[in-house]
Simulated scan of single mutants.
Amino acid sequence: MSSAAEPATQSAHPVALELLQSVVDVARAIFGAQASSVFLLDEATDELVFQAVSGQGEEFLVGRRFPADRGIAGWVATSGEPMVVDRLAQNTAFDRTFAKSTQYVPDALMAVPLLHDHQTLGVLEVLDPSPQTRSSLDELELLSMFARQAATALRLVTHHRPAAVRALTADDHVTAARLLTQLQELLDVPGTP
């Protein structure tokens, strides 16, 4: 697993928490999913930590930890490769016991690594996405692009703190506005909830 410079422990910063919650809320909305989660890698303990949850489990999963080599999230974190599974019951990497302990057992999921400079920061998962959003690999590519943007922003927040946020240039603000516009257009696409 790549070094991640402790993003899980640094994510307690309010801007990072707000950013991560926004990521899971938007991912859940884009894919019409039952839930979406961000797990960050805590290298000190070799665990993945629920840092933000939208939908099923959002009331109690934040802060929960599990071994970084466990389940599909662990495989994605270790390999650095995205994964889509439509029939989780038939997938040997799926840790059904752990899923039951979260009080929600999905039938399908999409998971992508949060990577920055070849470092695994964590995993973004979307649970039980709407079938029409999983019709092609374009959706996985979209989720991967979104995860890259989230990882870059997370890295900025966790390493440079508020000074970096205040130092954003006018171009950065224009780029952020474009991203928000594109996300809104995605949410308004016919056939998505």
Results as ranks from 00 to 15, higher is better:
Leu179Met: 09
Pro193Ile: 06
Asp117Leu: 09
Leu179Ile: 14
Leu179Val: 14
Val123Arg: 04
Ser135Val: 10
Leu40His: 10
Thr152Arg: 15
Asn91Trp: 15
Gly55Ile: 08
Met110Lys: 00
Val157Gln: 11
Gln132Pro: 03
His116Gly: 05
Leu142His: 05
Leu183Pro: 10
Gly32Glu: 00
Met1Gln: 11
Ala16Gln: 06
Pro129Asn: 01
Ala29Gly: 07
Ala68Met: 06
Leu142Ser: 04
Val85Trp: 09
Val123Ser: 03
His160Leu: 15
Leu121Tyr: 04
Leu109Val: 05
Asp69Glu: 01
Glu43Lys: 06
Arg178Lys: 14
Asp86Gly: 15
Met110His: 07
Val165Pro: 04
Gly122Glu: 03
Ala8Arg: 02
Ile72Asp: 14
Leu137Gln: 13
Val62His: 08
Val26Tyr: 02
Leu154Tyr: 02
Ala89Thr: 06
Arg28Asp: 00
Phe146Arg: 01
Ala35Thr: 02
Gly57Glu: 00
Thr181Tyr: 14
Val157Met: 11
Val24Ser: 05
His160Tyr: 14
Leu88Pro: 07
Ala33Trp: 01
Thr97Ser: 14
Glu81Pro: 06
Met1His: 09
Asp128Lys: 01
Val126Ile: 03
Ala164Val: 04
Ala163Pro: 03
Gly71Leu: 10
Arg155Ala: 15
Thr192Val: 07
Glu185Ala: 14
Leu19Met: 13
Arg96Phe: 11
Leu20Ile: 02
Pro129Met: 04
Thr169Tyr: 03
Phe39Asp: 07
Phe31Ala: 02
Ala33Asn: 04
Arg134Phe: 10
Glu125Phe: 10
Leu137Met: 11
Asp128Met: 02
Ala33Leu: 03
Val53Met: 04
Thr78Glu: 05
Ser130Cys: 09
Ala163Glu: 10
Gly32Phe: 00
Pro113Ala: 07
Leu137Asp: 12
Thr120Asn: 03
Leu20Glu: 04
Phe98Ile: 08
Ser2Thr: 11
Ala35Leu: 08
Ala164His: 02
Gln103Leu: 15
Pro14Ile: 08
Ala164Cys: 00
Ala68Asn: 07
Val15Cys: 07
Arg65Cys: 07
Gly191Gln: 01
Arg148Val: 12
Arg166His: 12
Asp25Leu: 09
Leu154Cys: 04
Arg134Gly: 11
Leu48Phe: 02
Val24Glu: 01
Arg87Phe: 15
His118Asp: 13
Leu109Ala: 07
Leu187Asn: 03
Gly80Ile: 00
Glu18Tyr: 06
Ser130Ile: 12
Gly55Arg: 00
Val38Pro: 01
Thr78Ile: 00
Gln182Phe: 13
Pro162Val: 09
Phe60Asp: 15
Asp172Phe: 00
Arg155Phe: 15
Pro162Cys: 11
Phe39Pro: 02
Asp25Pro: 10
Thr97Glu: 14
Arg70His: 12
Glu81Leu: 09
Val24Trp: 00
Gln149Ser: 15
Glu43Gly: 12
Leu61Cys: 10
Ser36Lys: 01
Gln184Ser: 09
Val126Gln: 06
Phe98Tyr: 15
Ala170Pro: 11
Ile30Asp: 03
Val157His: 06
Ala177Val: 02
Ala177Tyr: 03
Leu143Tyr: 04
Leu137Cys: 11
Thr45Tyr: 01
Val123Asp: 03
Arg64Asp: 08
